[in-house]
Amino acid sequence: AKPPKTVTVKVEVTNADGETQTRTVTLTNLPKDLKPGDTVTLPETGQTARIVEITP
């Protein structure tokens, strides 16, 4: 079996106070056609994050 493909992405997350924070997260099994501006759900927090940058 192939190991899951991990991708490092820079995302913007809005916290409970309405502040936008930029975080770098490593995600696995992202859709192939994901692009900056799309939103993903962070598995560890369940927060919705907007992708700023994808590092191949």
Rank of each mutant, 00 (worst) to 15 (best):
L30Y: 15
P4C: 13
P43V: 06
N15K: 05
T45D: 07
T39F: 15
L34M: 08
P4V: 13
N15Q: 06
K2S: 14
T48C: 07
T28E: 07
V52L: 14
T24M: 13
V25G: 01
E19F: 14
T14D: 04
T6L: 11
K5I: 13
L34S: 06
T14R: 09
V9C: 08
V7F: 15
L27S: 03
T28G: 08
K2Q: 13
P36M: 07
D33E: 12
G37Q: 01
T48A: 09
T48L: 14
P31R: 13
A49D: 00
G18Y: 02
L34F: 06
D38W: 03
I54N: 02
V40A: 01
T6P: 10
V25D: 01
T24N: 04
G46F: 04
A1C: 11
V7A: 07
V25C: 10
D33Y: 09
V7G: 03
A49H: 02
G18M: 03
D33A: 08
A1G: 11
D38F: 03
D33R: 06
E53N: 05
P3K: 06
N29T: 07
V40G: 00
P31D: 14
I54K: 01
Q47Y: 05
D17L: 10
T39H: 10
E44G: 13
T41M: 11
P36L: 13
T28D: 07
L27P: 00
P36S: 04
T45S: 09
T20G: 03
T6D: 05
V25A: 03
T39G: 02
Q21E: 15
T14F: 12
Q47T: 05
A16R: 08
T45A: 03
I51L: 04
T48G: 03
V25T: 03
T28H: 10
E44I: 10
R50F: 09
K35H: 06
L42F: 05
L30M: 14
I54D: 01
I51A: 01
R23L: 15
T6K: 09
L34E: 00
T14Y: 12
T22C: 09
T26I: 12
T55D: 11
R50P: 00
V7I: 12
V11S: 00
A49G: 10
P3D: 11
E12P: 00
V7C: 10
N29S: 09
T28Y: 12
T39C: 08
E53P: 01
D38Y: 03
P43G: 06
T48S: 10
V25H: 03
P4N: 12
G18H: 02
G37P: 00
L34T: 07
E19T: 15
L42R: 00
K2N: 13
V52D: 00
L34I: 12
E53R: 06
N29F: 09
N29Y: 10
K2W: 14
R50V: 14
L34A: 14
T55H: 14
P43A: 07
T39A: 05
I51H: 00
P3A: 06
T8F: 11
Q21R: 08
T8R: 11
T8C: 08
V13T: 06
L42I: 10
P36F: 04
T41I: 15
K10Y: 06
P56N: 14
T8D: 05
L34W: 13
R23C: 10
G37R: 01
E53I: 04
I54S: 02
V52A: 02
A16N: 08
V40D: 00
E53Y: 10
E53M: 08
G37C: 03
R50Y: 11
N15D: 11
T20K: 11
A16H: 09
V25M: 10
D33V: 07
T28C: 14
V9F: 06
G46V: 02
K5Q: 12
I54F: 08
K35T: 04
G46Y: 03
T26H: 10
G46S: 04
P4E: 10
P43T: 06
V9E: 00
V52R: 03
P43R: 07
E12Y: 09
K2A: 13
L30Q: 11
G18A: 02
V9T: 01
D17F: 12
R23M: 15
I54G: 01
D38E: 04
N15V: 06
T28F: 10
L42Q: 00
T41L: 12
K2E: 13
K2G: 13
T48I: 14
I51K: 00
L27N: 01
P31S: 13
D38R: 02
P56I: 12
V25S: 01
T41K: 08
Q21F: 15
K10H: 04
T26E: 09
N29D: 11
K32M: 13
T28A: 11
L30P: 15
V25P: 00
D17H: 11
Q47C: 05
T6S: 12
T39N: 07
P31I: 11
L30N: 06
T22D: 02
L34C: 05
E44H: 10
E12W: 12
A49E: 00
L42W: 04
P56F: 14
G37A: 01
V11P: 00
L27Y: 06
K32D: 14
V52M: 08
D33N: 10
T24R: 05
L27G: 02
G37Y: 02
T24W: 15
K35D: 02
P56L: 14
E53G: 05
P56T: 12
P43D: 07
E19W: 13
I54E: 01
A49N: 00
V11L: 07
V40C: 03
A16K: 10
G37M: 02
E44R: 08
V40N: 00
Q47H: 05
K10G: 01
E53V: 04
P3S: 05
V11A: 02
K35V: 06
P3N: 08
T26R: 10
T45G: 06
Q47L: 10
V52I: 14
G37H: 01
T14M: 13
R50N: 03
K10M: 10
K10R: 10
K10F: 07
T8G: 02
D38T: 03
T26M: 09
P43L: 07
K35L: 06
T14V: 13
